[in-house]
């Protein structure tokens, strides 16, 4: 890892250490390295020792805000490191009355975009040993030598469409913000699908969704899925059949996406956590795109005070059906 990165980690550690040891927070949610060098997983730091494990690199994709739901039950005051999407996720939870604002300290981090190990490995060709980064490039180090790749090309799907890498909400910004990004790619896949015939689209989704294991990892990772009892698990009424059936897969994914209509903060954690790689984010982005087109631009998670578009209306709203 590059030198500047170590500096950044030190800066972050110093900032949160004061608060954790000084009792301003009881727990810090951050990242630590996982089993492999290309994994960064959540860190639950309660001591100076724990903080030694703190990591901040190009693999800190896990959205930490959702962990607040559980941690706030145990701890009075929790600090969280937030990237752009973690902060929007926090606003999602805040607006849904899931977290009390005064019991959370948000430490803002500008996000450079997180790297996709599968892409790196494929690009490397042979066994990838490690990477370094410099000037918008990733240096892939393999047993055979070094190769360079454009960093933007190596990003996770969820980061390729990101427009807001800086946290929209924070108590303290730990590193200098980097400003909004343009993302021509955000709705590209949605538009491609829209251009298909109904038959083709159905074939696409039937194939995608047929892989669904119904493990509900997408739901567990999602900041808009905060119900105490999800509809899929309810016995009475039984909304969702348990059988492994294409129609049940459609029911689950359509309703889950609809539950995020006007609420999805586009963090892409659903898709990233899907073990079979279903392109779930396209369902969410379809809704974001349509609702913005029909009812005006709205970015969920940017401002917790702005009412989600499906909770409000204008008498002269347009409709996606004939009103004659």
């Amino acid at each position: 890892m590059a030198e500047h990165n170590l500096e950044q980690i030190e800066k972050i550690r110093e900032a949160v250490k004061q608060d954790l040891l000084g009792g301003r927070i009881d727990l810090l949610l951050g990242w630590e390295k996982g089993h492999y060098w290309w994994q960064s997983r959540p860190l639950f730091a309660q001591s100076e020792e724990d903080l030694e494990k703190l990591a901040w690199d190009s693999f800190c994709a896990v959205n930490l805000s959702r962990y607040l739901l559980e941690e706030l039950k145990e701890h009075n005051k929790v600090g969280v490191l937030v990237k752009g999407c973690d902060a929007r996720a926090f606003n999602r939870l805040l607006q849904d009355n899931m977290v009390p604002r005064d019991r959370v300290i948000l430490y803002g981090l500008p996000c450079p975009g997180m790297l996709d190990y599968d892409r790196l490995a494929a690009e490397a060709g042979s066994v990838l040993l490690s990477i370094t980064e410099e000037n918008g490039q990733v240096v892939l180090i393999t047993a055979e030598g070094e190769a360079k790749a454009d960093r933007d090309e190596m990003l996770l799907d969820k980061c390729r469409g990101c427009i807001y890498p800086d946290p929209a909400v924070y108590d303290q910004m730990l590193l200098p913000p980097q400003g909004e990004k343009e993302s021509p790619e955000r709705f590209k896949k949605v538009e491609e699908l829209e251009a298909m015939s109904a038959q083709e689209r159905f074939a696409y989704w039937e194939k995608e969704l047929s892989r669904c294991l119904r493990c509900y990892a997408c739901r567990q990772a999602c900041p808009y899925c905060s119900c105490r009892e999800c509809f899929v698990e309810q016995e009475n009424p039984r909304w969702q059949g348990r059988a492994y059936q294409p129609s049940e897969n459609f029911m689950f994914h359509l309703i889950r996406a609809y539950h995020g209509a006007g609420r999805c903060i586009d963090c892409g954690e659903c898709e990233r956590s899907c073990p079979v790689g279903i392109s779930l984010q396209e369902l969410n982005r379809k809704l974001i795109k349509d609702i913005n087109e029909l009812y005006g631009d709205y970015e969920a998670g940017l401002d917790a005070e702005l009412e989600p578009p499906l909770l409000t209306y204008r008498p002269d709203d347009p409709a996606a059906f004939s009103e004659k």
Binding site: Q199, R201, W205, A261, L283, K286, L294
Partner: peptide, 14 residues
Amino acid sequence: RRLSAFKRLVEFTG
């Protein structure tokens, strides 16, 4: 609003 969003989503899946 609700069913405009939902109608388009349903159409999106074919």
